[in-house]
Measured scan of single mutants.
Amino acid sequence: KKSYVLIKVKNPKTKETHTIVVPEENLEEVLKALASQPNVKVVDIERFP
């Protein structure tokens, strides 16, 4: 059974918020990819039960 993680990201320029759902096993690479985006800020990470 896969567990999923909900990542909320915000664009500081446009103030838009997006929610991305990723499998927990991919969380680290997704966070690394997001960290390299200049106008993306991770605001929240939630685990799915």
Score class of each variant (00 low, 15 high):
E46C: 14
H18W: 15
E16H: 12
V21I: 12
L34H: 01
N26Y: 13
V42H: 01
K10G: 04
A35D: 04
P38M: 05
L27W: 03
A33G: 06
N26V: 09
V43K: 03
H18F: 15
K2V: 10
E24N: 04
I7H: 00
A35E: 08
I7M: 02
H18R: 14
R47H: 08
I45E: 01
V22Y: 02
P12W: 15
E28F: 12
V22S: 02
V22A: 03
T14C: 06
V5N: 01
I7E: 00
V40M: 13
V42R: 01
V40L: 12
K8W: 15
V21K: 08
T14E: 03
K2M: 09
P12R: 15
K1E: 10
S3Y: 15
V42W: 02
P23N: 09
N11M: 05
V9A: 02
T14G: 03
T19P: 02
D44I: 11
K10Q: 13
E28T: 08
N39P: 02
E25C: 05
K32D: 04
K15Y: 09
N11L: 05
I45W: 09
P12F: 15
V21S: 05
P38C: 10
L6S: 04
V43W: 03
K1A: 11
N11Y: 10
E25K: 05
D44T: 15
K1M: 11
E16A: 08
L31P: 00
T14R: 04
L31E: 01
V40T: 09
K13L: 14
V40A: 07
E24Q: 06
K15E: 10
K13G: 07
K32I: 07
F48K: 05
N26M: 13
H18M: 12
L27I: 05
V9C: 07
R47D: 04
K10F: 15
L34Y: 04
E28N: 10
T17I: 12
Y4L: 05
Y4V: 03
K41V: 15
H18V: 10
K2G: 12
K10P: 00
T14F: 04
A35N: 06
E46G: 07
K10Y: 15
Y4H: 03
V43Q: 04
E25L: 04
E16W: 14
V21Q: 05
Q37E: 06
V9R: 00
H18Y: 15
S36G: 09
R47A: 07
V43G: 02
I7T: 00
H18S: 08
E25V: 05
R47G: 04
V21C: 14
S36T: 08
P23Y: 13
N11R: 04
T17Q: 08
V9S: 01
K2S: 07
V40K: 04
P12A: 14
V5E: 00
R47Q: 05
V40N: 04
V9W: 15
Y4F: 09
V40E: 03
L6F: 13
E46R: 15
K2H: 11
T17C: 11
V9L: 15
E46M: 14
E16G: 06
L31N: 00
P49K: 07
K10L: 14
P38E: 07
T14L: 04
E16F: 10
R47P: 11
L6W: 14
K41W: 11
F48V: 12
K41M: 14
T14Q: 03
R47N: 05
L6C: 04
K10R: 14
V42P: 01
S36Q: 12
V43S: 03
L27D: 00
I45R: 01
K10C: 14
Q37Y: 12
V30W: 11
Y4W: 13
V5Q: 01
K13D: 09
N26I: 10
V43H: 03
V22F: 03
N39Y: 09
T19H: 08
I45N: 01
L34R: 00
E29N: 09
K32V: 05
V22P: 00
I45T: 03
K8S: 06
N39V: 03
L6E: 02
S36D: 06
P38Y: 04
T17V: 13
S36N: 10
I20L: 12
A33Y: 15
E16K: 14
V40P: 02
E24F: 10
T17N: 04
T19A: 06
P23G: 06
K15C: 12
I20R: 02
E29I: 09
I20A: 01
L34F: 07
K15A: 07
L31W: 02
K13P: 02
A33Q: 09
E16D: 07
L6Y: 14
K32F: 10
P23H: 11
L34Q: 00
F48Q: 06
L27E: 02
V5G: 01
P12D: 14
K8I: 11
E24D: 05
P49H: 11
Y4Q: 02
L6V: 07
K32A: 11
E24S: 06
E24W: 11
A33K: 10
N39C: 09
K10T: 11
E16V: 11
L27Y: 04
Y4S: 02
S3P: 08
Q37V: 08
K13F: 15
T14K: 04
E28R: 09
V30L: 07
V43A: 03
E29T: 09
S3T: 12
K2E: 07
E28Y: 11
E29H: 08
N11W: 08
V9P: 00
R47L: 08
E16I: 08
K8T: 09
D44A: 14
V43T: 06
K8D: 01
V40I: 10
T14W: 04
L31H: 01
T19R: 07
T19Y: 14
E28V: 10
D44R: 14
P38F: 05
K41S: 08
P38H: 08
H18N: 05
E24L: 09
K32E: 06
P12C: 15
K32C: 08
N39H: 10
T14S: 06
N39F: 09
V5S: 02
E25S: 07
V5P: 00
L31V: 03
Q37D: 13
Y4G: 01
L31K: 01
K15I: 03
L34K: 00
I20V: 04
I7K: 00
F48P: 05
V5T: 03
R47S: 07
I7Y: 00
V43C: 06
E24H: 05
D44L: 14
H18T: 09
N11Q: 03
N39R: 05
I45Y: 05
V22W: 03
I7P: 00
T17D: 03
L31S: 01
L34D: 00
I7D: 00
Q37L: 12
K15L: 12
V21A: 05
V21F: 10
L31Y: 02
E25A: 08
V5Y: 15
T19V: 12
E24M: 08
E24C: 09
V9M: 10
I20H: 03
S3M: 14
E25N: 05
P12Y: 15
T17M: 11
T19E: 06
E28P: 07
L27N: 00
N39K: 04
K13Y: 14
E24T: 08
A33H: 11
V43N: 02
T19W: 15
